[in-house]
């Protein structure tokens, strides 16, 4: 039914991630080989401190890799300049925006920056895309509110709308569901899933909501101490990959319900 060979958006070859200073190199994970296809929703799961953020920061050029390659759209990540990269990759970070005095519309409009002229004037086309992103994330009624008036859940939707407005083939979100209640966690992830279906974008997000991710994602990247595996949730379950996620003294993965249970 679907095209047999889907376009690969992001690919890593023997990627090593970690931190280096003049004297020391701290490798967090190595030999990472993952491929993200167009039109996939991919979750990245793993224990605290396993290196999820480091991996995302390396994939997004916030931090340098310690070895291997990251290839986005068949082009080496290091050969992108800032503005080129901004047109293929947008981010939603865990950090708060500095100025909450921006209105929702203004904040979403900043997503159009890579395309606007030197002073940042919005064209007709820009306005269309901004309004479309606002529709897709269901925040029309917040449009003229200031960001400091919003709840955490609303603000997260706005940040996602901003990434949509950037109109990139790949969107990467770092823990988009933290600080949100159960309903909003599901809401945000469902929103991402719908976006992937509707627009054939590729969305990669890190999360601790493993049970939600299993239900919603096309693929999951499971990060453990010794390896990083990308596969469909189903295969992960049958191969027992979730069992090695956490120390086994407290919680175990129950295959029949696809969730973690207290031991």
């Amino acid at each position: 039914m679907a095209k047999n060979k889907k376009h690969t958006i992001l690919k890593t070859k023997n990627l090593s991630i970690g931190y280096s200073s003049k004297k020391t190199r701290t490798i967090v994970a190595s030999n990472i080989n993952i491929e993200l296809q167009q039109g996939e929703l991919i979750g990245l799961v793993g224990a605290n401190g396993i290196g999820k953020s480091t991996l995302l920061r390396t994939l997004t050029k916030v931090q340098e890799s310690l070895g291997g390659n990251v290839i986005i759209n068949e082009k080496e990540l290091t050969s992108y300049n800032a503005n080129e990269l901004a047109k293929v990759l947008s981010l939603v970070l865990t950090e708060q925006v500095v100025s909450k005095n921006l209105s929702v519309f203004e904040l979403v409009a900043l997503g159009r920056q890579p395309y606007t002229n030197w002073v940042g004037n919005l064209s007709e086309h820009d306005n269309e895309i901004i309004n479309q992103s606002i529709n897709q994330t269901n925040i029309e009624d917040l449009k003229h509110k200031k960001c400091f008036e919003l709840s955490d859940g609303q603000l997260q939707k706005v940040m996602i709308a901003r990434a949509f407005a950037q109109d990139t083939a790949l969107i990467i979100l770092d823990e988009p569901t933290t600080h949100l209640d159960m309903y909003h966690k599901a809401y945000i992830l469902k929103l991402l899933q719908k976006m992937v279906k509707d627009t054939q974008k590729t969305i990669l997000f890190s999360s601790h909501e493993i049970d939600l991710a299993i239900q919603l994602c096309d693929k999951l990247i499971v990060m453990t101490d010794d390896k990083v595996i990308i596969d469909t949730p189903k295969n992960h379950i049958t191969q027992g990959n979730f069992n090695s996620l956490f120390p086994k003294d407290l919680i175990v993965f129950d295959e029949s319900t696809a969730s973690f249970k207290i031991n």
């Binding site: 990269l85 047109k87 981010l91 970070l93 500095v98 920056q113 950037q166």
Partner: peptide
């Protein structure tokens, strides 16, 4: 913020 600014080119 600076990281967002960077991601916007």
């Amino acid at each position: 913020g600076e990281n967002y600014a960077k991601s916007l080119g």
